[in-house]
Simulated assay, not measured.
Amino acid sequence: MLRVTKAKTTPGQKFGKAAFLNAAKKTNERLLLQVLLKDGTTYTKEEVTKLVEDWKKKEVKA
């Protein structure tokens, strides 16, 4: 899912919301990242992966 750039990245390197949105392969991934990530905040790939995993584990409220 989180293919940020073709260039090599270093561990712990942070990227903005736009980089993750541009890297999303599918529309549903892009929509999820649009909702979860905050504008003006940078994230590591690991942080975004954890945010997405935690969101997917959340209980659905009826």
Rank of each mutant, 00 (worst) to 15 (best):
A7R: 14
A7I: 12
L2A: 13
L51Q: 07
F20V: 01
K45T: 10
T10D: 06
K57S: 13
A19R: 11
G12T: 01
L21C: 10
L51A: 06
L2M: 08
V35F: 08
L37K: 09
A24K: 08
K38R: 13
A7Y: 09
K50R: 15
T9F: 14
E46V: 05
N28S: 14
K25E: 13
M1T: 09
V48N: 06
V52I: 11
R3H: 12
A7W: 10
G16E: 07
A23T: 04
K17L: 03
T5W: 08
K45H: 07
K25L: 09
A23V: 10
E29K: 06
T41N: 05
K56G: 08
V4R: 01
E53S: 02
E53R: 10
G12E: 03
L37A: 00
R30C: 07
V35S: 07
N22I: 05
T44R: 03
K58E: 12
Y43P: 03
V60S: 13
L51H: 03
K56R: 15
F20Q: 02
T10V: 13
V52Y: 05
P11T: 05
A23P: 03
K38S: 13
E59S: 14
V60H: 05
E46F: 07
K61V: 15
L36T: 03
Y43H: 05
K45Q: 12
D39N: 11
K25Y: 13
N28F: 15
L32H: 04
T44L: 01
F20G: 02
K14T: 15
T10F: 11
K50V: 02
F15A: 01
K38I: 03
R3Y: 13
Q34E: 02
T5S: 10
D39L: 01
M1F: 00
M1R: 14
F15D: 01
D54Q: 11
Y43I: 05
K17T: 00
D39Y: 09
L31P: 04
K17C: 03
K25I: 12
L31V: 10
A19T: 11
L32S: 01
K38Q: 12
K8A: 13
K45I: 01
K50A: 04
K8Q: 11
D54M: 10
E59Q: 14
T10R: 14
E53H: 07
E53T: 07
V48P: 08
E47R: 04
V4G: 02
